[in-house]
Amino acid sequence: MLHILGRRALSVGRLTALSATMQLRHGLLAMSGHVTSLKVYIGIFLTLMFLTGVTVAVAYVNLGQLNKVVALGIATFKASLVVWYFMHVKYQSRLTKLVVVSGFFFLAILLGLTMVDYGSREWVNPPASLQ
């Protein structure tokens, strides 16, 4: 009995410290309502406009297979700007960042593994690299 009480007292001590850090963490996160300056918002908007122009202009230049890569690259970059600044992920916890990344991770699984099937449909005989 005494033994148990002793251990409890010890862990209560540890707990007070723990809850102090938790309060601190809560306090810090409350500050995460970071106010972005007008300049940044307008800068991002202009960059997005510029990139929209670029993506249309590039569509008229024949780059062969590279056209779609460039189009998707620019779109991804634009989306990242929106996520990072307009959606404040820059100032959010690591957990939020993880959620964003995991969305694209599982999307990549869906697209990638399905294409494993469609990409190898024509392989009646194994490709040279596998023979």
Partner: peptide
């Protein structure tokens, strides 16, 4: 306000991908 903002920006992002994928295939 912040939550509806997040939602609205997401809808914007979807369009950022839809625009090149639907309108800009091989114009050159």
């Amino acid at each position: 306000v912040e939550m509806s903002g997040l939602y609205w920006h997401f809808v914007d992002i979807v369009w950022i991908f839809l625009f090149p994928l639907l309108y800009l295939i091989d114009r050159s």
